[in-house]
Amino acid sequence: MLKFISFGSGSSGNSYLLMSDNTILMLDSGVGIRSMKRYFQEYGLSFTKINAILVTHDHADHVKSVGAISNDFKIPVYATEAVHKGIQKNYCVRKKINAANKRVFLPGDDTIEIDDFKITPFDVPHDSCGN
């Protein structure tokens, strides 16, 4: 069974979980870390169960807590090289992603398999790095 949870959608933060029976993917992590921890507790979830974080683009409302979550729980972060560079430069991202957790893909060229999910990234025009 597939499950979807939205922790925020808008300029104050975007973050979602997509879950199968065996795999949990976080899509963006732009909600503040304290709020994320509160949401996880309310839903009875554990950050340690997240298999990967997929980042759509480098705006603060999509990446604010990506470094904190990735580093604290050793979760790989998938994004284009340009988006990873944008995250590094983003002053709203206080904890940057450790190099060991970075995973790079090429939109349209790569298909990423993460346990139960097969992801094919693609470009969407937007005013951010790599888009």
Rank of each mutant, 00 (worst) to 15 (best):
T111I: 15
K37P: 04
I24P: 01
Y91A: 08
E81N: 11
A99W: 07
V93L: 13
I53K: 02
K64G: 00
G44Q: 10
N98C: 15
D109S: 14
S9M: 11
G10C: 09
I114A: 04
N101M: 15
I97T: 07
N131I: 11
V93P: 11
A79R: 05
I69S: 02
V63K: 08
T48N: 14
S65C: 04
K102M: 15
L2G: 00
P125A: 10
K74L: 14
T111R: 10
I69K: 01
F7M: 11
Q88V: 09
H84Y: 14
I87N: 03
D127P: 10
N22L: 10
D72L: 13
K118A: 13
I33R: 00
S12G: 12
I69P: 01
L106C: 08
S11T: 10
N22K: 14
Y43Q: 11
R38V: 08
G30W: 10
D21Q: 14
R38I: 14
I87E: 01
S9D: 13
G13R: 10
H126M: 15
I50Q: 02
P121E: 02
F117M: 12
I112S: 04
I75A: 03
G8K: 06
G108H: 05
D123R: 12
K96P: 12
K96T: 08
A68I: 11
K96A: 14
L17G: 12
D109W: 13
L25T: 00
F73K: 00
Y16L: 02
H62Q: 01
A52F: 08
D58W: 14
F73C: 01
F4Q: 04
P125G: 02
I5L: 13
R94I: 14
L2V: 13
S29Q: 05
Y39F: 15
G44A: 10
K37N: 10
N71F: 01
Y78P: 04
A99R: 09
M19Y: 01
L27C: 11
L25F: 00
G44N: 05
K37I: 05
I24F: 00
F40T: 08
F117G: 03
V55L: 02
S11I: 12
G108K: 06
H62L: 06
G67Y: 03
T56L: 11
L54G: 01
D72H: 06
N101P: 12
S20C: 07
A82D: 13
N14T: 15
D61V: 06
I87V: 04
P107L: 10
K85T: 03
A68H: 07
S20Q: 00
D58A: 13
A99Y: 08
K85C: 02
A68K: 08
D21Y: 04
I119E: 01
A68E: 11
H62E: 03
I119G: 03
L27V: 13
L54D: 03
F40N: 06
G86K: 07
T80Q: 02
A68D: 09
L25K: 00
A68Q: 07
V124R: 08
I33K: 02
T23Q: 08
I112D: 04
G67N: 04
G32R: 10
V83W: 01
T48V: 09
H57V: 01
M19E: 15
H57D: 15
T23Y: 09
S20T: 11
N90K: 13
Y43G: 00
H57F: 10
R34G: 05
A100F: 06
I24A: 03
G8E: 10
V55T: 05
A99F: 09
N98K: 14
D109P: 03
